[in-house]
Write a protein that binds this DNA or RNA. Sequence first.
DNA 1: AAGCAACCCAACCGCCGTTTC
DNA 2: TGAAACGGCGGTTGGGTTGCT
Length: 382
Amino acid sequence: MGHQCCSKQKVKRGLWSPEEDERLLRYITAHGHSCWSAVPKNAGLQRCGKSCRLRWINYLRPDLKRGTFSEQEERTILDVHRILGNRWAQIAKHLPGRTDNEVKNFWNSCIKKKLIAQGLDPKTHNLLPASKHLLHAHGGTGSGSNPSNNPAARAQFHSPNGNGNGCATPPFTISSPTKAVYDAATVAPPVVAPGLYDVHNPGMMMGQHERGQQAAIAMQQGYPYVHNNGGGLLMNFRDQNAAGVHASMDFMNGSSNSSSSMEYAAGMPNGNVFNPGVAAFMDETAAMWATVVEPRMGAGIEMAHQHRQQHGLGLEEVVGPPPRPLINGGSSGGKGLDIMDVSSEVYGSAGTTTAFDLELMESCGLFCGAAGNGMEQLQWDC
DNA sequence: AAGCAACCCAACCGCCGTTTC
DNA sequence: TGAAACGGCGGTTGGGTTGCT
């Protein structure tokens, strides 16, 4: 069933001629496109409004950047896709001058194939089963063979020289600073609060024991954790859904209008920058939580509880400033606090909806390696 | 040079959410 | 309040191009 505008009139289909382009361009330049359905008629085109819109957006728009995608753009696509999946329009918003169609085509014709060739599932960005097997057979340790969930295996897999899994060219490598932090965070104490990234140092997980404790305490209490260093960023996963497996997220940015907040149902699609294996906060039942919180962190929680009881302190007095009400897009006064919360209290009982402020993420340099210190420096062997 | 296959990409299709009447 | 119109999006298709045999 198509649009009525397309079925009512006799419209031309197929490739646009230069004359048609010229007409459309001239009309929109002069009059704009307040109503697409009126554009073809007014511009004297035998096309449907939808077709005109598409032609304008994908080809005629003056701000379009043509040509091949840069490595930076490729990384951006990969990073955002890892979070959002096939939401091409959202991904394209992070690539000035690129259209969703362009991004989609580039993904399907290039990136997807690279991922597959490197043994990664283009949907989840995780290892494909066959590759997992390979890795496992070569000494994957711990509870799982997927390096996304297994720090040791992951480190091995990401080793720039690592071909222990039989893969001549590792799909990605973590840049040494990031990897160092990663290793410290996941292999050796001090314990790090999984999922907390230091926004002051984009791409770096918070590496201080205290932060881990603070976060743990806050999370345990269902409070948003406030990283009180002037640019804090919180990720709080709380899912009260009975199913208990959906990771709902909301990123709130006090300094942003959150104009691009978007909903993303069904939780995180994959192991990504908030890798569920090493960076997942899951909820108040602490089921999954328990799998990622180290014993020392638990002790920290307990100590904090005691401290609070002994001194009659509110939580905020233990872990920092008081949490703000969970209001999407709420302001904390400029550079203050960025709170991300996920809660079915906020997003309904289903608890499966995610609001996700990518502008915030971007501004924090979490994507695109904006600060030159991305979470993962991807190295492509094309 | 011709035939074929693979690839690329512009455009279409169908669905969905929002707006308008 | 419900239906129609519309805008937007993601998936798919088909024609043109390129590379290989």
